[in-house]
């Protein structure tokens, strides 16, 4: 890495692949769609990295990620919401604590995921970028090409709707 910019496409896959996949999974709620999207993002990064000009790498990467997702939504002509599958892909869970904890966490995770999928796209995207990916408001603003004030509002409203859906 140089100034936060990965040197190669392989570095991007190594350092950001998991985050990209989790972003895609939380937006779609579907492991197959998430896999396709993550793969498309990495391919687009490979093509675009040569023309990348130093700046906000995170903003650049997440703008690509977002565009891939929106392109896919347009291509499939579907609302950017899909139903949660019955058989969530649980084989890729990173940590495996005690069985009881895993079950409780999965049930809770399912509820949270369902609530997430019920959010309007802009709110869902904002809370996922903030709370799942861990971007700052500035980085989210660059990624979604919106003012920071709009991002702040979307995150707030998204969380309020999440809370209402889960009570």
């Amino acid at each position: 890495m140089t100034d936060g910019v990965p040197l190669s496409w392989e570095d991007v896959a190594k350092t950001h692949g998991r985050k990209i996949y989790n972003f895609a999974y939380r937006l779609t709620g579907n492991p197959d769609d998430a896999k396709d999207l993550a793969q498309d993002v990495l391919l687009r990064v490979e093509r675009g990295l040569a023309n990348y000009t130093p700046g906000s790498f995170e903003g650049w990467l997440w703008r690509i990620t977002r565009n891939v997702f929106l392109d896919d939504v347009r291509r499939k002509k579907r609302r950017p919401t899909t139903a949660l599958p019955d058989d969530l892909d649980r084989t890729n869970l990173i940590s495996t604590p005690a069985p009881d904890e895993v079950l409780a966490s999965i049930r809770l995770g399912d509820d949270v995921q369902k609530a997430l999928l019920g959010l309007p796209y802009d709110f869902r995207e904002a809370v996922v970028l903030c709370d799942v990916v861990g971007l700052s408001y500035d980085e989210i603003a660059r990624a979604v090409a919106a003012p920071v004030g709009t991002v702040r509002s979307r995150i707030h409203r998204g969380r309020k709707l999440m809370r209402e859906a889960l009570t």
Binding site: R18, P31, L93, M162
Partner: peptide
Amino acid sequence: LHAARSLLRSLPVLEMPESIRVDL
């Protein structure tokens, strides 16, 4: 808001499927 934020942040982190690396 704090509760909603905590729930979102406690979602399990998924590993990127190995098949993506293989396919690429």
